[in-house]
Amino acid sequence: MKLQISSRLAIFAVLELLAHPDRQLPVGEIGAKYGVSNHHLAKVMNVLGRAGLVRSARGVGGGYQFCGNPRRTTLLDLIELFEQLGPGEREEGQLGEGTDEARALHRVLREIDDVARATLGSITIATLYKYLERHAAGAPHSAARAAAQEP
């Protein structure tokens, strides 16, 4: 499956913020790592802010901090702020709409969609951070490690 750039960016940005819980992270710093414009990233951060997941501070040393619960915020929560996953409830406007063949295909796509949603809905940002910690080179931030600890 493929995610929209904004969804991917939101996930990456939250991971970056989790890795630096004691800092306000400027969008420029996150954007530089992923090669995206400040403008695009600011839009993403704005959506995350409206969802109560990040808070910003202006001025010198300003930037963003994650303020959600990393153990209760799933990848699906983040992704659905930016896009709707899967083929949707109906096949309206699709090639072959109204045919038995299209309905049969739609059932298969729904099945795939259900699995994808269940998977994304079962992985929290804390769990993803732990995957990252396990597989990435370099030492992650200790406070972030504490934030990702299990119940």
């Binding site: 409206r50 969802a51 109560g52 997941l53 303020c67 959600g68 619960n69 153990r71 209760r72 915020t73 799933t74 699906l76 929560d77 659905e80 702020l81 709707q84 119940p151």
Partner: peptide, 24 residues
Amino acid sequence: VAGKRPKQASRGGVRLEAQRSAAA
């Protein structure tokens, strides 16, 4: 085995405030 999950996120505007304090 975890706590009661607060209100689900919905597209276009999640409200996760309750989630933030649930585990804290």
